[in-house]
Design a protein around this nucleic acid. Structure first.
Lengths: 249, 249
DNA sequence: TTCTTAATATCGGTC
DNA sequence: GACCGATGTTAAGAA
């Protein structure tokens, strides 16, 4: 049986399911009334309430309230999760170092606990990322501007990495920053930082490539003599790097 | 009973528990072998494997693999989650508009499902945020520099919001950008963008306040005539805005 | 480990 | 609903 459930478990059963389950590589989920304390990069406290806890064998701990996508408290993989009795209550603690932090969950009443011996070898395959947009541009620089030629991809400079260092049809250098989402002021900043490396060269151009940009971003670009190039859709099959497995769905 | 578990449920039971549970405000968790498809801002596919599904009444759907802190697939709150039979399998679909996207989970084998009628009115209280750092600086500007005086907090400009607009002991304007974590190049960018608003004024200074900064960030600041001020620890009780509830733990 | 950047980022405040 | 910036951002990739 991959999933083994215990209803209204006592503290001893709970401690055993959590400790043994995690040690043996299972996911353990709990439904329980609890209070939570976090101390680390910040500190915080969550008063009593009903939550869903998820403990994974890699040290992940999630505390989910009834609403919301993100856990109210959590510990990323890499630490340790342990359960011990304290004054008759069960306390689940997750810790890690670097940064040093701790999540402590004091269970007030446990409604259920499930040990889940999950077996999953699959990896998520994704399409439409910025990496693919880069590959598309590298294969089709003319889509940005007639005569544009890519000189270097991901050029490292003392101020960070330039997406594309290119030249236009007249041989002038062009710094290109690519975004797969609507361009923000921070993206404008990034481009401007890269262009500033070549400010002794009057001929250098800066180009922000994205599907859209707010008016404020467009104005900021204009004010700095930089350009916006709209690239909304790109053929995901024409990148030359498309994974064959993705054609199945 | 707050948590009601069904072992190896058939498709009909599953559909009923998911649909009825969510409609009545319960959290539904499933242990199941499944495959997942996402289509929206990007698209992706996850082949068969054992995962934990979490469905919340606010439209949240989480698909968790045995490892890792973040769900491999998800839908944030605001959409709808539904379950229906298709060719004898149960298919759980989460959708939303703006952006239009969809997560579809095809269950191959369900090991267990739990309906959890969770009641949680508590709100998380946090201390040590950037807001508190702002309050501390506003109350103790001398910590940044002797004689510094805050003129305006969160000043809106055409290029965004300046954390603090201040004056130094000689009356020169100082643009202050505050970060609670180690300063990054993007934070440097932000400060430079704000300072550029006053570039007609030779006397304007720019100050990045953070607990630390990489050498690359420090060099970028120096190159642009901007300053770094280290503020590692600040007394969380001395901000003047500390919430009394937080003194309990 | 540290640094740099993308992310289906999410989330909240404001206009 | 769009825009802007914080986040205990997380996570991946490179030096």
């Amino acid at each position: 049986m991959a999933a083994e459930h215990h209803e209204t478990p006592d503290a001893e059963t709970l401690a055993n399911v959590v400790e043994t389950g995690l040690h043996e590589g299972a996911i353990v989920t709990l439904q329980a009334e609890c209070e939570v304390e976090y101390d680390g990069r910040t500190s915080g406290y969550l008063g009593p309430g009903d939550r869903l806890l998820v403990c994974k064998p890699d040290g992940t701990l999630l505390v989910h309230q009834p609403d919301g996508h993100k856990p109210v408290n959590w510990m990323p993989a890499g630490g340790t999760v342990s359960a011990r009795e304290s004054d008759g209550d069960l306390v689940v603690v997750a810790r890690r170092v670097n940064p040093r932090e701790r999540v402590e969950v004091r269970l007030i009443e446990a409604y259920g606990v499930t040990r889940y011996d999950a077996d999953d070898a699959a990896e998520y395959e994704e399409s439409g990322t910025e990496d693919e947009m880069h590959a598309y541009i590298e294969a089709h620089p003319d889509e940005l501007e007639e005569g544009l030629r890519v000189v270097e991809h991901e050029r490292e400079t003392k101020y960070g990495f330039i997406d594309f260092f290119a030249t236009d049809s007249e041989g002038n250098p062009v710094v290109v920053e690519v975004k797969r989402i609507q361009a923000t002021l921070n993206h404008f900043d990034q481009l401007k930082r890269y262009v500033s490396l070549y400010e002794d060269n009057d001929e250098v151009r800066g180009m922000l490539v994205a599907p859209s940009a707010s008016e404020r971003v467009r104005r900021a670009l204009r004010d700095s003599g930089l350009e916006f190039v709209e690239l909304a859709e790109f053929d995901r099959d024409a990148t030359g790097t498309t994974d064959a497995k993705l054609s199945d769905f």
